[in-house]
Write a protein that binds this DNA or RNA. Structure first.
Lengths: 111, 111
DNA sequence: CAAATATACATAATATTCTTATGTATTGTT
DNA sequence: AACAATACATAAGAATATTATGTATATTTG
């Protein structure tokens, strides 16, 4: 997350949405995917990513599958059933958030 | 800020935009205004608001005018020249942020 | 082929931001 | 008289992310 402060608090939502979209992903893959789809504008740092993944796992939102590729480890993360349900809420919250921010930034359009 | 974690990091942007829009405002007025325009969905807490205002003032983004109304104080805040310039950047960052989040949430529409 | 870059994980110290709780004081409402 | 609203403020703690660092393998490039 190498950007404006605005991204603070949005990492979990990003992770959950990506996993909902892609089934399972490993950490490094996530960083690359985000860089790709935002055309380099959002860079997720490892120091934010790995603790976030571990916490979501501890909460039962994600589960891990460790795979050996060549001589290297990959930890694939995917949503649990609980995680899938929570992702729906997270995305609804994001929509609300964006709506509210747009209302503040562009009040003429809304009230 | 009594809501999802998503709002973390967005308070300064909100404050600066409101002051750009309304010229000058005092703390309590800001809390009410935000509650009003978001129809009660976003509530800025005092514990977040006042330290944020003080910090922006210390940074030279805002300046204060203390007014006595009846026997009570009001501290009106307004953007400095520097603050007005930074608000332009803040709003550009917000647009970028929203655009990127929408890209992540709805990838089919974008790439 | 050595060096640099990319892949892949991880954590610790620190910084930032916000929540929750609390405090003071005046004014308006029931 | 009691409670809610107005109006400011701060302190302890939680949550989140940055920056720096560490380990190790694989691939590219000069």
């Amino acid at each position: 997350m190498k950007n404006s402060q605005l991204y603070k608090g949005s990492l979990n939502t990003i992770l959950m949405k990506l996993l909902e979209e892609n089934g399972k992903m490993y950490g490094y893959e996530i960083t690359q995917k985000v860089k790709e789809i935002t055309k380099g504008e959002l860079k997720i740092t490892e120091g934010a990513l790995y603790p976030a993944l571990h916490k979501l796992e501890a909460e039962g939102v994600l589960e891990v599958e460790v795979v050996q590729v060549d001589n290297r480890l990959r930890k694939y993360y995917k949503l649990t059933e609980k995680g899938s349900a929570e992702t729906v809420n997270k995305l609804a919250e994001l929509e609300e958030f964006i709506k509210n921010m747009q209302t503040i930034v562009n009040p003429k359009l809304s009230y």
